[in-house]
């Protein structure tokens, strides 16, 4: 790491003592100062550390390819993106798919549909499952990102990434989930199996929607940091951690439906802890991501 010299020499001790993220902001700033953004490094960084919220949108945009690596072109590219957004929005309003009353998420959905060429003939057509996924993610994203252009773009690219990059990985996640759950707590897994709830767990919610709507956005964005930076396995650990956290309750429930129902509506108060533990667990099992360079 070339920027180590610029980092505070105390950072090592901070980490040892247990303060995390004291120096991340600075190092992130150093990373972002590069004229040509090193996407790889950003990826590694965001996988290792939680992103500061003020840079999250920027990092995400960079990671998702919304912004090019060069700072010079950012303004122009963003202008393009904006134009595109407005054009689409305009077109949709023209074709009366959306109106002012249309919720923003739906607007994004329609825009996404339009861009992907899947705009239904009529807005009244029932939504397909992937549209639901988008809608959920867009809703969550709406909370995280203020600017609507950014929001649209990020959610669009996020979903695209899910659909493209993780297309093969996502279906493997339930199996991985079972595996890690077995490692962590085999009893729980056996209980789930006896309840035959393993197959009925809310995998869609967890892995397709990436916990959008399941966890509060404040903690969700930390999970999504990892997802954006290219690791969808974190989802598995979050799921495992949820089960571990609510183990007692889950063990108390016997039927698959009840378990599923409970898991779909888990209490939100302990989500931060869940996420932290999940990240730890992830680090534990998959190792701390190190910059390959």
């Amino acid at each position: 790491m070339t920027d180590d010299s610029q980092r505070n020499f105390r950072s090592v001790y901070y980490e040892k003592v247990g303060f995390r993220g004291v120096e991340e902001k600075k190092s992130l700033e150093i990373l972002l100062k590069d004229d040509r953004l090193d996407i790889e490094k950003l990826c590694t960084f965001s996988q290792r550390f939680p992103l500061p919220s003020m840079y999250r949108a920027l990092v995400w945009k960079a990671l998702l390819g919304i912004l090019p690596p060069h700072h010079d072109t950012h303004s122009q590219v963003m202008a393009y993106r904006k134009d595109q957004y407005h054009d689409i929005l305009h077109a949709l309003t023209v074709v009366r798919f959306i109106s002012d009353a249309t919720p923003q998420a739906e607007v994004y959905l329609r825009m996404y549909q339009l861009e992907s060429g899947k705009l239904p003939r009529s807005p009244s057509f029932p939504l397909e499952p992937e549209d639901e996924v988008f809608l959920a993610i867009a809703k969550a994203m709406e909370e995280m990102v203020e600017d609507s252009v950014d929001c649209y773009w990020i959610s669009r690219c996020f979903v695209k990434q899910l659909n493209n990059k993780y297309r093969d990985a996502l279906p493997q996640l339930p199996k991985a989930f079972e595996q890690y759950l077995n490692l962590e707590d085999s009893r729980l897994l056996s209980h789930l199996k006896t309840c035959s709830a393993v197959s009925k767990l809310p995998y869609d919610l967890w892995f397709q929607r990436c916990f959008a709507g399941c966890l509060p956005e404040s903690s969700l964005q930390r999970v999504w940091d990892k997802v954006v930076s290219g690791s969808c396995k974190i989802l598995v650990f979050v799921a495992v951690e949820i089960l571990l956290t609510f183990k007692i309750k889950v063990m108390a429930l016997n039927s698959a439906e009840k378990i599923t129902k409970f898991l779909e509506n888990i209490p939100q108060d302990s989500s931060d802890a869940i996420v932290s533990k999940a990240i730890d667990l992830w680090h534990k099992h998959c190792g701390t991501p190190v910059h390959s360079a």
């Binding site: 060069h70 122009q76 590219v77 393009y80 861009e115």
Partner: peptide
Amino acid sequence: GQLLAAESRYEAQRK
């Protein structure tokens, strides 16, 4: 990058 953006824009326009 610009091109990509432009392209996407263009794509969007086409759409």
